[in-house]
């Protein structure tokens, strides 16, 4: 899948953001005392750039003395790390068992059709990223869609257009509790 994303991502979005190696070294310095702080370093880089740029991984490998393949292995192992830039809005469709039997695959298909991307990809205008998740733990509310931290319960395929419109107009209201924790 990583390869798919990498291949398709290159056609779609050109991740041309200059990586400030000094900034990355600064992040690394914050974790020097910590043994094996690679995951927190990568997490901090991702929160700064929104994804893990290739050059950033190279800097991390050079600075920590790890080989690039080890750093890359960790970055691809965890689902929360992404190697391709993310769109402005993140759409996350739950495909857990409960959501699945209630028609979540149809919802994903509708998102795919409207955005013309596959799950894991970002639209060329960098507006939307579509992702699927295996369970959000809110099975009673399924099929559930999360847009930028806001949960839409009981989504049917015909609701997809409305959700996208809301997201585009930035009318997605995130409950204060979620906003505070996330």
């Amino acid at each position: 899948m990583i390869q798919d994303i990498a291949a398709s991502g290159k056609q779609q979005v050109s991740p041309h953001e200059t990586v400030d190696s000094k900034g990355i070294v600064r992040i690394l310095n914050g974790h020097r005392q910590q043994r094996g702080g690679l995951i927190s370093v990568l997490g901090e880089i991702q929160s700064q750039y929104g994804y893990l740029p290739e050059d950033a991984l190279r800097v991390v490998a050079d600075e920590t003395g790890n080989s690039l393949v080890d750093v890359y292995g960790v970055a691809t192992f965890y689902r929360s790390f992404r190697l391709q830039p993310r769109g402005k809005h993140l759409i996350c469709v739950c495909l857990g068992t409960a959501c699945h039997v209630r028609g979540a695959p149809m919802v994903v298909e509708e998102f795919e059709r409207r955005l013309a991307i596959q799950p894991g990809q970002t639209t060329p205008d960098r507006e939307f990223t579509l992702e699927t998740v295996n369970c959000l733990g809110a099975c009673a509310l399924g099929p559930i869609v999360v847009v930028d931290g806001c949960y839409f319960p009981g989504v049917r395929a015909q609701d997809v257009g409305q959700i996208l419109e809301k997201a585009r107009l930035e009318r997605v209201e995130v409950p204060s509790m979620v906003a505070a924790s996330g």
């Binding site: 899948m1 990583i2 390869q3 991984l57 393949v69 080890d70 292995g73 691809t76 192992f77 190697l83």
Partner: peptide, 20 residues
């Protein structure tokens, strides 16, 4: 050398160089 390693996990686990 450490040129190749495991990438990703689960059924997508593969061996290769970083970034292919």
């Amino acid at each position: 050398a450490k040129a190749i390693g495991f990438r990703s996990r689960g059924e997508k686990r593969s061996i290769g160089t970083p970034f292919d």
